[in-house]
Design a protein around this nucleic acid. Structure first.
Length: 294
DNA sequence: GAACTCTATGCTCGGAAGGC
DNA sequence: GCCTTCCGAGCATAGAGTTC
């Protein structure tokens, strides 16, 4: 009898614990471990695909320090949907581990607001990623929800929509997130694209710049779209390679001519040019002498 | 190396235009 | 008339570049 009583007591305890876990889950207080296969990304993508090597190494060495936020999938029982923590989920999936998650009942609006606020706190989403996130939200939510989710005012929201609408999806994808490139630079790109004789060619050009960092691809595309100005003596102010990539900037004044080579982009070329200068000067002197003698 | 200048960015405000 | 949307402009700030 005592054994039966103990069993019933155990059952009650387990039931109480289960209820407690359920209650905590409902409030989003408990961190639980979930199979990554049971979790889908948010229905609104925010971040472009990017490098997660650093995060991967960090989680491999120190484990997952911060849980992700998920909600029970509204249509598929037993499945979950991410509110924020997409990159952590990707890294943990690659490591084949279980992911620590907080489960919370969220409406669609609450999910995107949580997702947006997390992104704002991290402050590492680039302008164009935010703009695209906003544009995706526009398909389902009111402006009020979007401004709440992204902590932007309505003016900025309008500008974001305009930029995303004006640029071909393929071009944005080809350029990538372009960290450090802000609204005004993207507006400049829109304006250049509108004036370009063959706008679709910009996408092809950007696709050919895969070796460069995203923000450098952006700069190259802008430079490529800018009308080539011809300055004194027929020398353009930007010297470009046959493939369109920028080699050097030329500044001319009455007193001097400056050729500025981006050492980061083409370090060997800069060194090569410097090496050649004495030889070029010798060649120039020789030709100059010949002219005088003739 | 410090001071200064320039440039780009984010944020905010105010006004115009259009819809209800 | 009110609200929403859009746009231009100004301000503060940070970072890079330049000058001394």
């Amino acid at each position: 009898m005592a054994a039966v009583s103990k069993s019933l007591g155990d059952l009650n305890d387990r039931s109480r614990r289960a209820n407690e876990i359920e209650r905590k889950l409902a409030e989003g207080q408990a961190v639980i471990e979930l199979d990554t296969a049971s979790i889908e990304p948010s229905f609104v993508q925010d971040r472009m695909e990017g490098d997660i090597d650093g995060l991967l190494a960090s989680i491999r060495e120190q484990g997952q320090q911060v849980p992700i936020l998920v909600r029970p999938h509204p249509e598929q029982p037993g499945q979950y949907q991410v509110a924020f923590g997409h990159r952590r989920l990707r890294a943990i999936t690659e490591l084949g581990r279980q992911v620590k998650a907080i489960v919370r009942d969220l409406t669609d609006e609450q999910l995107v607001i949580a997702q947006g606020q997390e992104n704002n706190e991290r402050e590492d989403l680039s302008f164009i990623e935010k703009a695209r996130f906003a544009a995706r939200l526009k398909e389902r939510f009111s402006r009020d929800v979007i401004t709440a989710a992204m902590s932007v005012d309505k003016s900025d929201l309008t500008r974001m929509f305009n930029i995303v609408d004006a640029l071909p999806v393929e071009l944005i994808d080809a350029i990538g997130p372009a960290p450090g490139v802000g609204r005004r630079s993207w507006i400049e790109l829109v304006e250049l694209l509108e004036k370009a004789p063959a706008p679709q060619e910009a996408t092809q050009f950007a696709l050919g710049l895969r070796a460069l960092a995203s923000q450098d691809r952006f700069k190259e595309v802008v430079t490529h779209l800018k009308p080539r100005r011809i300055v004194a003596r027929g020398v353009p102010d930007v010297l470009a390679a046959p493939d369109g990539s920028r080699l050097a900037q030329v500044k001319q004044s009455k007193a001097k001519v400056e050729i500025m080579i981006d050492r980061k982009a083409t370090p060997d070329f800069a060194a090569f040019v410097l090496e050649q200068v004495p030889a070029l000067y010798a060649e120039y002197r020789a030709k100059h002498r010949q002219k005088k003698e003739a």
